[in-house]
Design a binder for these strands. Structure first.
Length: 308
DNA sequence: AAGACGAAAGTGGTTGA
DNA sequence: TCAACAACTTTCGTCTT
């Protein structure tokens, strides 16, 4: 738990994530970026001569992948330079310019469109800026490697976003991505696997805990129930009940059990809908949890209390 | 009547020959 | 490349509250 206590103005969630490098405070529940451009945590320098100034200068346009040329376009020379050249050299110069123009316009046109789409989907899902940047970076790499060929631009954008979310530990389900982008779930999964394989992006299997906060707030569960769910989840992980299982199913079952124990019962259907799994899956995980973790007493106790 | 439970058959993805 | 396999889903009937 963080030492500062602050609530998200959007959803009231308390799971805030501080990203020092980017100076952002992110709500893990709804993805809202609460504070941008906070103080710069880097050391402040003063420069006394040109050499130091060059090294230490931190100003200038920031490099960003959400601009199609990363904010740093490079051209093959300008016209005023050609007086230095002549004959062959001059021809070469024009040839280079022509080629650069052709290549860059093709890629740039694609990137411009794609990044617009990326921003649209990203803001629909209320993803933090850092994830958007990451997705843009992934997409740019994919374009450069020609991985978009044969695939729709939109599906690659969705795949890049999905990957970026996972890397930043604010995972969204494929269903959510699908709803936001209008691309078929399977298609996103396919392109996601393809581009991560081709680009050698290593992604850890997503941790069910990362889903708890968002699901809990969607179910309007109290903070106590939420942390109870996390406890249960951790026990489950220690008992090796989680490997090989779908992380959303486990998160959903933990929440369901926690809601029973804390007398804040939600139906299996409610939890299932939010988590994007079926009741059956929740039941299966739920049974395993009860059996292996000896939680039966706790649950039945609360049931008795209800009767009393 | 709604929710919980469980069986059975089907789907898509991974793995290992 | 194909078949076996595990996880998950869909569907449906039954039991419980």
């Amino acid at each position: 738990m963080p030492t500062y206590v602050k609530k998200c103005p959007e959803c009231g969630g308390i799971n805030l994530l501080l990203n020092k490098e980017r100076g952002e405070m992110i709500c893990k529940d709804c993805g809202l970026v609460i504070e941008e451009k906070m103080i710069d945590f880097n050391q402040e320098w003063s420069s006394h001569d040109h050499e130091q100034a060059d090294k230490r200068r931190r100003t200038g346009a920031p490099m960003t992948y959400t601009k199609f040329d990363r904010g740093m376009g490079t051209d093959v020379g300008q016209k005023q330079d050609i007086y230095k050249l002549s004959g062959k050299e001059r021809n070469k110069f024009f040839r280079l310019r022509k080629w650069q123009h052709r290549i860059s316009t093709a890629i740039e046109r694609n990137l411009k469109l794609a990044l617009a789409e990326l921003k649209r989907v990203s803001s629909y899902l209320k993803l933090p800026k850092s994830v958007e940047e990451e997705a843009a970076r992934i997409y740019t790499l994919a374009v450069q490697r020609g991985l978009v060929r044969g695939r729709s631009m939109e599906s690659v954008v969705a795949g890049a976003l999905y990957a970026a979310c996972r890397r930043h530990e604010v995972p969204r389900t494929l269903d959510e991505l699908s709803e936001a982008s209008g691309i078929d779930k399977k298609e996103i999964g396919r392109t996601y696997r393809f581009i991560t394989r081709e680009l050698q992006i290593r992604i850890l299997p997503s941790n069910p805990v990362d889903y708890i906060a968002r699901f809990a707030s969607a179910l309007k569960l109290t903070a106590e129930t939420q942390s109870r769910a996390v406890e249960i989840l951790e026990q489950a992980q220690n008992s090796e009940l989680t490997s090989g299982r779908g992380p959303t199913g486990i998160a959903a079952a933990s929440l369901y059990v926690a809601s029973l124990i804390n007398n804040e019962k939600r139906t299996q259907r409610e939890v299932a809908d939010i988590a994007g799994v079926t009741e059956v899956t929740i039941r299966n995980r739920y049974k395993e949890l009860l059996r292996k973790l000896n939680l039966m007493e706790k649950v039945s106790k609360t049931k008795k209390k209800k009767k009393d």
